[in-house]
Design a protein around this nucleic acid. Sequence first.
DNA 1: TATTGATCATAT
DNA 2: ATATGATCAATA
Length: 227
Amino acid sequence: MAPPPRTEGELVERAKAIAGRSLGEIAAGLGSTAPDSLARAKGWVGQLLERQLGASAGNTGGPDFAALGVELKTLPVDVRGVPRESTFLAVLSPAELCGARWESSRLAAKLRRVLWVPVEADPATPPAARRIGNPLLWSPDPGEERALRADWEHFAELVAAGYLDTLTGHAGQVLQVRPKAPNKAARRLAPDAEGGQSPALPRGFYLRARFTAALLARHFLLPRAAR
DNA sequence: TATTGATCATAT
DNA sequence: ATATGATCAATA
């Protein structure tokens, strides 16, 4: 377990140092072994990178690198470097969403500064052989910020009005609200349309894959002048 | 095949 | 129980 990085620069250097290396190599360096499949180890890649980069242990609710205010996200990419999956951001807490402002929301806080680490995720490649890509330390630009806020405010309004159960993965331009539960029988209290509280399937906020695809493309494919 | 809905493991 | 880390599996 590495000590926490002291600066953003140190964090980025650590991430650059493992670009091109395989998950199996990184695991071995940490005295661990890669699973044969992620089916029963879905969070393994993220947790491996947390250990390797020295993320502050456990879940304090805050960013992974508390002292730096930086959140770490691995991004499963295909052979072209395009994200294969949406990115889970946070549990949707109905109570916390009611009457909240985007500027002071937990989601906005998490997205202020993110270290994206692309990782190969071809299902035909065993986890140990998957390679780590070049990291990107990112903050939303004004356009991204506007899109995120618009979706979030729309969701917050619906939830506060008691319409959480009308929200599906179809809603949102850049964000999504999707199930985030042990199973579909799970329930959690949320405002209902009658002004009370009723049990509802727990949900989480996700970033659409096309959003992360666009930000990777902008930073890695386009010339600096375009940014 | 892309997207949405369901699920798995671990730590607190 | 709930938050962390996500990917799997079914659907459109």
